[in-house]
Each structure stands twice: as C-alpha cells, then as structure tokens.
C-alpha cells in the first residue's frame, strides 16, 4: 500500500529544479500581489533577501522576498469544511454572450495547475434540436444544493458547505470514483497518474479550498475558487471572461456581478428567463443559465483542435 508514497519519492526532481519550481510557485501559485516595501515609514520591514521568481511570460527576475504575498493560501481542511459564514454563492452564465473565447477555461487551467486533458470548466457545443441553432455552453461544477456526488461519498471526502460550495478533501478521498458515476453533469475528474503540476510544491500544505497540491488517485473538480472568495475576489473564470458571460455573487445579498455590471440576481433571472440545467433531476444547482437568446455574437464553430493527451 505504501508503494504510492514510495513512488512519489522516487520521482522527485533533482534538487535544483525543485528549488526553482518552489520559487516559481511563489509567483505563479501564490501570485505576487502588489505588496509594498516601505523604506521610510515602516520601520518594521527590512529589505529582505532577494528571491527569484518566474514571471508569467516565463522569465526569471529577482525581487525582494517581502514583496511576495503569502496570504492567499487556502485555509486548512477543518475550516474549509465549514464554508464562508453568511454566504450562499450563486453563478449565472449568460449563454447569449458566450462566443467560445475560452479565456475562462485558460484562467481556470492556469490557476489550478491543470494539464490539457483535465478540464474543470468545460465549454460544450450544444444543440437542443436538429432544427435549432447551436450555442456554446460553459459548464463549471454546478455546486448542487442536493448534490448526488456528496450523497454517495463513503468517507465524507466530498462535502456540501454552508455557503453552497461542494468541495473535495483530497487527503480524505479514497479514489472509489462513485461520485464521478453519480454526477449527472460529468463535472468530476480523476488523477489517474501522478499530477503534472509545474510550479506547485507537492510537499506543501494542502487545502480543499485551493485543491493544490493535486494528489494522485483522488477525484477533483471545479471548486468555485473559495480562496479567491475569501479575499472578496471573483472566481478566476468570472474575472477572465472578456464578454461578461459569468455573473457571480451572494444569493443572500441577491446581488451578482460579472466584474463590470452589478445587478440583482432575482431580477436578472426573471427578466432573461433563467433556468437551471437538467432541473428535472432535482439536484438544485447553484449555477443558473440565461438562454442563448438575442445573441451578441453569431454562432461560429471555432472549437480548438481536440487535445492530445500527453503520455506520462
């Protein structure tokens, strides 16, 4: 049984590369936020040691260690099971605005360190009937209020939080994949092999809120980026969309935003005939869709070539 762990050890990279990746993680994983080093009026913070970080365009620069913001790491498992107090998150996806730009997907892949084959946010080309026009349908995890995946989990590894988010504890998951069979929305993915996650410290602390570091033999999926929500920031897909397709907000406030507009959730759903996908299943998703009516863009099949899976 311990072979998996031994295996993980066996495959560790040589020290130099690991060390570098670790630094890269500070930039890519934790993000260098615009933190300031005060020279004159701080007194407390001394100019610290210089560390190397990998920039988003793949270059190596030296910055002061104190500039790196470590505050955005996910909370520990116990806290992550509770949810953010007083919130009930909701997402609205306006299908009439989607033109398959895939920025949402790219941002999601990047921030969760996902390889090409493993997409938490999928964009489907949908056609309801042969005579109707096709449309693009982005689909994250729908974070159902009556989640069939959580029902079947034998070890409480996946759970429904008070704020409506369904998360997975990858330190608990036994890899039975029952949740994948139970999910009618194909939202769940499995780490069939040792995850390919450059820039992640695999020995680092794990949080269900960041789903990082990803672990072999466990199930994972879209998590609504609770680490961002805790900072009062929108999930990555929402802020990355150039067309304002994704609205996100708190159901209790009845206010949602796509980054540009801030609107009343109930009003938007009422005005634009919002619906939930496969409502008949009774799963009560937290994600609503606005029909692909009065489209902003004509449908164009610009789907990328089918990705090839890298041989591991």
């Amino acid at each position: 049984m311990s072979d998996i762990h031994e295996d993980l050890k066996d495959h560790k990279e040589e020290p130099n590369r690991r060390n570098f990746l670790k630094l890269g993680a500070l930039a890519a994983g934790l993000a260098v936020t615009g933190a300031g080093l005060q020279k004159v009026f701080s007194g407390s913070e001394k100019p610290g040691e210089k560390v190397k970080v990998l920039t988003t365009d793949g270059q190596l620069v030296e910055v002061d260690k104190n500039h790196l913001d470590h505050s955005c790491c996910g909370v520990p498992s116990k806290e992550a099971r509770q949810g953010i107090p007083g919130k009930k998150f909701v997402m609205v996806i306006d299908l009439s605005r989607c033109r398959n730009a895939r920025k949402c997907q790219k941002a999601c892949q990047k921030h969760h360190h996902l390889p090409e084959e493993d997409k938490w946010l999928k964009v489907f080309k949908m056609q309801d009937a042969p005579s109707t026009s096709p449309y693009w349908m982005p689909k994250p995890c729908l974070h159902c209020d009556k989640p069939p995946c959580v029902k079947v989990c034998p070890v409480d590894a996946t759970f429904k939080r008070s704020d409506g988010i369904v998360l997975i504890d990858n330190e608990r998951c036994i890899g039975c994949r029952f949740c994948m069979a139970a999910c009618p929305y194909s939202s769940r993915a499995f780490n069939w092999h040792k995850p390919d996650q450059p820039g992640v410290d695999e020995a680092g602390a794990y949080s269900p809120e960041t789903s990082v570091p990803r672990k072999i033999g466990t199930v994972e999926k879209c998590d609504f980026c609770p680490d961002m929500l805790r900072q009062g920031k929108l999930p990555h897909c929402v802020s990355a969309c150039p067309n304002g397709v994704f609205y996100f907000g708190d159901m209790n406030e009845d206010i949602i935003t796509n980054g540009d507009e801030t609107v009343k959730f109930s009003q938007l759903i009422k005005d634009k005939a919002g619906y939930r996908y496969l409502e008949g299943l009774g799963t009560e998703p937290s994600v609503y869709y606005l029909p692909a009516a009065n489209r902003q863009f004509p449908f164009k099949d610009n789907a990328e070539e089918k990705p090839e899976v890298k041989k591991s």
Binding site: M1, S2, I4, H5, K151, V152, C153, P154, V155, D156, A157, R172, C173, I174, G175, C176, R177, F178, F190, N191, I216, G217, T218, V219
Partner: peptide
C-alpha cells in the same frame, strides 16, 4: 481504489448514506 493506502478511511470516516 485510487488510494488503497487509505482503506482505513472507510472505518474512520464511514458515511452511512453511501451505498458503498
């Protein structure tokens, strides 16, 4: 099982709602 090394989780955290 993806994680046979965690089989004891079934006994530590067993969840009676699950058909498994």
């Amino acid at each position: 099982m993806g994680r046979p090394d965690r089989i004891h989780h079934l006994f530590l955290y067993g969840r009676i709602q699950s058909p498994i």
